[in-house]
């Protein structure tokens, strides 16, 4: 029943690095875009807000699969050359989840009490100083739990890169293992799921550490939740936009 277990594990492991690369790359781009567009949505300039809003709605409103197909099959026609699949995948993950992350950043910045802005104005700090020194450090604490959920969605989304021939874990199982070991399909797919589960748990541990650090930064006692537990977002109080969503 467990014949070939070590073959399965080693084959899936060969995709592990690419899954991690895609996820980490996606997380880096998504984080940068989240802050850029999240803050842009709070800009005083109507044009800047509009541009940010269009980015967010387009990337949340279309499907990740369609985005992958588009960058892999359509973009080469438009620009004349094909992008390396891994790079294309990372870019789509970053742009897609950055759009969700932008809403997280916007919400967290808006959740900082108005009194903090006023305190900063009374000390004659410039708008940039207010944001960087006073508001963002406090908003950070609010952002960490939703970003934890977002990054796990992104990890899950990295499996779709199999569709544009990135040889990550799902690809290894689907294209390398399954056809020759169809009678052990349950074992192969269970192993793949467990690999993803472990990665998701690692993300959660990392984010919990980040949350404790951020809580100390604002002089709050970190709460007593275990380091493994994700905080659930308040599912009923979210705002609706074209994103919908499990984030």
């Amino acid at each position: 029943m467990f014949d070939n277990l070590s073959l399965f594990v080693s084959t899936i492991s060969r995709g592990l690095l690419l899954t991690v690369e895609a996820t980490v790359g996606g997380i880096l781009i998504a984080t940068v875009l989240s802050f850029v567009f999240g803050l842009a949505m709070l800009s005083r300039s109507r044009t800047v807000r509009l541009v940010a809003r269009i980015y967010v709605e387009i990337w949340r409103g279309t499907s990740e699969v369609v985005q992958l197909l588009w960058i892999y099959f359509v973009l080469p026609v438009l620009i004349g050359y094909r992008i390396v699949p891994l790079v294309a995948g990372i870019v789509v993950l970053g742009l897609n989840f950055g759009a969700y992350g932008a809403e997280i950043v916007r919400g967290a910045v808006q959740s900082v009490p108005k009194a903090q802005y006023e305190g900063a104005i009374a000390l004659n700090l410039t708008p940039a100083q207010r944001m960087r020194r006073v508001i963002l450090p406090q908003a950070l604490v609010e952002m960490v739990p939703p970003f934890n959920n977002l990054f796990i969605q992104l990890l899950k989304g990295s499996a779709l890169l199999t569709m544009i021939t990135v040889h990550e874990m799902t690809y290894q199982a689907r294209e390398v293992l399954i056809d020759r070991n169809i009678d052990q399909a349950w074992l192969i797919w269970t192993l793949v799921l467990l690999f993803y589960l472990v990665l998701a748990i690692l993300i959660t541990i990392g984010m919990r550490l980040l949350e404790r650090w951020a809580a100390r930064l604002v002089g709050r006692k970190p709460d007593e939740r275990s380091i493994f537990s994700r905080r659930k977002k308040p599912v009923l109080a979210e705002t609706v936009s074209a994103g919908g969503g499990p984030l």
Binding site: I152, K156, I178, A185, W186, L193, L197
Partner: peptide, 21 residues
């Protein structure tokens, strides 16, 4: 927690390949 933390695509493949068994 397990279902939420793992990719839908892999779950889809699991069902697609294991149901016939």
């Amino acid at each position: 927690e397990f279902i939420r933390s793992t990719p839908l695509l892999v779950q889809l493949f699991f069902l697609f390949f294991v149901f016939p068994d």
